[in-house]
């Protein structure tokens, strides 16, 4: 189990992570969903011991990360967002080296390396220098280096960024494979569909704060069955609220001069009412985007903005 309580990380005036708390269970995938710069990698950095938290407590498989670092890291695997490989070494040499960093030696290490190479589909290229690999193969090896020692807890920091669809599917299968063996996984991503398909529990993070947490079903319940309707054009934020409030079941999530965000049940059937109300307020609608209930629409509802790439 990975337990994070009141985590805070500050760089000078910048508060990168602000009072983040969550618990990730063994045999399950806990997703940290948020845009770039939301604080996901900083959170992972603090859990892995790379960064020293400004405040808060992190317990990793029963070990306090601050006071019992090496013991906590012994059962931890980390797959960083950027490739962390020796390009002039072969895949096998990379795995052997990173296995040795977790005190693995001799035959057990060789067997484990062979198994991980097979699992990641790199066995036939195991002895080639990594610099000859494709991007997807490097990603798989990057993942393999994180699990070569058979960790009980695994931190995956956007492991599928820049990966071709085929390699992405393979990587996600590898992650599921780990949880079947009882590994506790924390998975950060800004891909909604990945989070929806993979994660058992999720926390949505933005500007260093967790803004929602729960299972996928619990998070969807926050939205209800409402769609998210985004209108772009010319609006007067002070005058549009009143005519819209007369329509039942509409929530004005965000109002700006060039954009309105609304949460509306059965939005497609109520568009004419909405346009009419806006016309009375002197607004000019140029573009309409309707999003079905999803993590994406939840994120828009919670933050008033789309998940940025």
């Amino acid at each position: 189990m990975i337990d994070v309580q009141g985590l805070r990380k500050q760089y000078g005036d910048l508060l990168a992570v602000d009072d983040v708390s969550f618990t990730a269970q063994p045999g399950a995938i806990f997703g940290l969903l948020g845009p770039n710069g939301a604080g996901k990698t900083t959170t992972i950095g603090c859990i892995s011991g790379l960064l020293k938290p400004t405040a808060g407590r992190i317990s990793l498989l029963g070990h306090d990360v601050a006071t019992d670092g090496p013991a906590s890291r012994r059962q931890l695997g980390v797959v960083p967002q950027e490739l962390a490989l020796y390009e002039d070494l072969s895949a096998r040499e990379n795995l052997l080296y990173w296995g040795s960093a977790y005190s693995m030696r001799g035959e057990p290490l060789n067997k484990r390396v062979q198994m991980v190479l097979e699992l990641s589909g790199l066995l036939d290229r195991a002895n080639e220098p990594v610099k000859k690999f494709s991007g997807g193969m490097k990603r798989r090896l990057n993942f393999a280096c994180g699990i070569v020692h058979g960790p009980k807890a695994l931190l995956l920091d956007e492991p599928t960024v820049g990966v071709d669809p085929q390699s992405r599917v393979r990587l996600l299968d590898l992650v599921r494979e780990q949880t079947k063996q009882g590994t506790c996984v924390i998975y950060t991503t800004h891909y909604m569909e990945e989070a929806e398909n993979l994660c058992d529990r999720l926390a949505i993070i933005d500007h260093g704060k967790i803004i929602a947490t729960g299972t996928l079903a619990e998070l969807r319940a926050i939205l209800g069955e409402r769609d998210v309707l985004r209108l772009t054009g010319l609006f007067d934020p002070t005058t549009v609220a009143e005519p819209l409030s007369r329509i039942d079941g509409i929530e004005l999530v965000q109002a700006e001069q060039d954009m309105l965000t609304l949460a509306v049940a059965n939005a497609s059937g109520r568009l004419s009412d909405i346009f009419q109300a806006l016309a009375t307020a002197g607004a000019e609608v140029r573009e309409t985007t309707l999003t079905q209930p999803s993590l994406e629409s939840l994120f828009i509802k919670l933050t008033g903005k789309e998940l940025r790439e």
Binding site: L50, R73, R74, P80, E82, E87, A101, Y102
Partner: peptide
């Protein structure tokens, strides 16, 4: 630059 140093730091080795 190739981030292997970070991997060392998050390993149990000093």
């Amino acid at each position: 630059d190739q981030k292997t140093l970070r991997r060392v730091v998050v390993s149990p080795q000093h």
